[in-house]
């Protein structure tokens, strides 16, 4: 496909630009809104998972077991099933089951356990000696969390944020199933169902670009905060 043919194709599909921009906006809205809410809930859940572990700072066997089980269940439900399974809950929260806002609910629910496990893993990377040193210098549990665990795990947590956002870009493509819109939805409807390979290609390229951008920004932040 030469440059000229791309140009002429483009002239025949002027409405498409508008469509793609809208879809891009929807994807960004879905990814970042669900990501933001997901972190707000998932990070504390991850912290609790870590602290309540055996030999953890605030060991609590029962809480750890229950929370771990809930997280595992959340992690094991395929997203496409979660999307339709929680429709009543989505309606309860946003009042509708279609549209971008409705897609944010299952995306968030899907992201929380994912983030929780990643954050738990990041906290696990903090050497236990640091917590011990803090205890030895008379730090209270809350101080250990805010002054030792979280700052030391920050590179890992930022990494978790990056991985989650990238995963959410992928999940958001499925949100078309509930009329959530977004680039994935455009790709399926125009590209796959109408056999328009060019549209499919364009959406894929944009998605690749978004993922690259998120990843390199994440890497940059990690590099900035990581002094290990």
């Amino acid at each position: 496909m030469s440059f000229d043919s791309v140009l002429s194709w483009w002239e025949g599909h002027e409405g498409l630009l508008q469509l793609l921009l809208e879809a891009l906006g929807e994807t960004v809205a879905m990814v970042f809104a669900s990501g933001f809410i997901g972190f707000a809930i998932g990070i504390p859940v991850g912290i609790v998972l870590h602290l309540s572990k055996k030999n953890g700072l605030l060991e609590h066997h029962f809480l750890n077991k229950i929370l771990g089980m809930v997280v595992n269940i959340g992690r094991s439900i395929p997203f496409i099933i979660l999307l339709v399974a929680i429709i009543p809950f989505t309606r309860f929260i946003v009042g509708t089951t279609i549209g971008t806002a409705a897609a944010i609910v299952p995306l968030t629910i899907g992201a929380i356990p994912f983030i929780a496990r990643l954050v738990e893993g990041a906290l696990l990377e903090v050497p236990s000696g640091l917590v011990e040193a803090a205890q030895a210098m008379g730090a209270k549990p809350a101080q250990i969390i805010t002054k030792v665990l979280l700052p030391e795990a920050l590179p890992g947590i930022i990494n978790a944020v990056t991985i989650t956002l990238v995963t959410l870009v992928g999940y958001s493509a499925m949100a078309g199933t509930v009329g959530g819109g977004g680039l994935g939805d455009v790709g399926i409807r125009y590209g796959y169902q109408r056999f328009d390979a060019t549209v499919m290609m364009i959406t894929v390229v944009i998605l690749v670009f978004i993922v690259q951008l998120i990843q390199s920004m994440g890497d940059h932040f990690v590099k900035y905060v990581d002094h290990r």
């Binding site: 050497p127 000696g129 640091l130 030792v148 700052p151 030391e152 905060v225 002094h227 290990r228």
Partner: peptide, 12 residues
Amino acid sequence: GMIFQHFNLLSS
């Protein structure tokens, strides 16, 4: 006060 074999300084 306590000091350790592996120093246990905060890298951040």
